[in-house]
Amino acid sequence: MKISAQKQLHKLKILLVNHGILILFACLFLIPIWYTIISAFKLDRFIFTQPLSINAASFTVSNIVRAFRIMNYPRMFFNSMMILGISCLMLIIFGSMAAYGIAMARHKFFERMYGFFIILITLPFQLAMVPLISMLKNMNLINTFLGTSLVYGGFYMSFVIFLYTGFIRSIPSELEDAARVDGCGLLKMYIYIYFPLLKTITGVILILRGVAIWNDLLIPLITITRTANATLPLRLMSFVGSYYTSWGLVFGGTLLVSLPILCIFLLLQRFFVKGIMSGAIKQ
């Protein structure tokens, strides 16, 4: 009897204190997002006078429509998708191949190479940035999808190899022995046995690095000089620069740029959270 009363009390405490704290902070965290969404649908003067509410009198879609047109949104979306696609393909295919090579070799030379890649993970991008861009110019890779993707490839590859190698090493070696007995070569084994096993970790890598590439500003800023080749964040930057006085347009553009990733995140939310949490343990 007493124990159950205590349990009830504990439950009440959790309800009031923990949920209370969480709800308070969750609301504080959501205000900027709520503010952005409703401001994107409001006439400029109402953004200032009624910041947190929206009604029929203040509602408009013209911000979104105009921002969409001025930014040349479909083109920017396509550019972003191409860079994301090429970088991720490169990271996943070459990264998993390298990790497979390192894990299968079990040799001192490969271990050294692996150690070298791990050291590279901790070094800042800024250390390579300036000569890298001058080199891209000489190779005519500025303003190209491939050029920007290769910069992501060079910078993120070590981390991807690190995640894949850890994962491949956790696969029992009996699998390899069995495949060998069946006369399966290294390449066949990679394509038919190992790569299909890497689905989960590939998902984690896509979440950890794909989102970073899609959202990045610095690398497009230095590898893309023509507006027609810009990615969404880079275009937003110049767009806001030209329309800074119209808050409605700024919020409209901001919402448009965030929309694709927000939709994907809310749809696959469970998967994202799980992916980050399992990726965290491996780091």
Binding site: A26, F29, I33, N215, L236, V257, S258, L262, F265, F272
Partner: peptide
């Protein structure tokens, strides 16, 4: 988890 993680999905530019 979703609420607190939401801002992390936005571009830092945004």
């Amino acid at each position: 988890k979703t609420v607190f993680f939401l801002p992390n999905m936005l571009s830092m530019t945004v």
